[in-house]
Design a protein around this nucleic acid. Structure first.
Lengths: 111, 111
DNA sequence: TGAACAGTTATCATATTTGATAACTATCAG
DNA sequence: CTGATAGTTATCAAATATGATAACTGTTCA
């Protein structure tokens, strides 16, 4: 119970490693969560406020936004979230063999 | 080889009541299914072929594509379907009050 | 007519998401 | 420190999507 300056010490000691960086940016699920968070903050809303609009709880909003959760949300859930922050959604399909071929990895010598 | 899938498609499309014409085109779920069907046929695949790739059954593919079903598919399901026909997906967010400013409504003086 | 093909629909079991609650960390301000 | 705010995580029950099977319609072709 008694933690005076120790608390401040610990909070800095344990910071999140930047493990997931470029990797998951390819995953639509990951990209989605980043967008959700960005748009919500841009709208100046808290998770709790969104939860209220959607008649649910903030913990559920957190789960939706958080990449740690391994859930794949329903389309309607994404839709509702988007609606709460004032957006419509659209699902775009882009051909897989779209070679952007541009500075994706380190260069490899073509032999 | 293209027996009459196109014919069938058209028949279905045209037999839809006019009610869900302009209406549901606003629904992402509806737009999605239309895209799924269109892209699959463009890829020259049958529901059964897609089912095979995804290790499932054609009835499930039908359910996914068919607007009659009131299900809201998971993001991962859409992803897998897209993958089977050679596409990646991306979810786009567009502001609800998107003033395209272009002949949508009458102009009003912004004072 | 009949067989093969493509898609639909119904049903059930299983898997997964979602909702609700509660406890927790962390930050900020008095 | 205390309280308030924002977000996270765990857990369980309830809701819903998905998988599998089977029966069905409609089309095409011989």
């Amino acid at each position: 119970m008694n933690r005076s300056t120790l608390t401040e010490f610990k909070r800095k000691a344990l910071s999140k490693p930047a493990v997931d960086k470029e990797y998951q940016s390819l995953s639509p699920a990951y990209a989605l969560r980043k967008k959700l968070i960005a748009l919500r903050q841009k709208a100046g809303l808290t998770q709790e406020q969104i939860a209220e609009v959607l008649h649910t709880k903030k913990s559920n909003i957190s789960r939706l936004e958080n990449a740690n959760s391994v859930i794949s949300p329903k389309l309607s859930t994404i839709e509702q979230y988007a609606d709460a922050i004032g957006y419509d959604i659209e699902i775009k399909f882009k051909p897989k063999n779209h070679r952007t071929n541009r500075s994706i990895g380190r260069k490899k010598r073509a032999d």
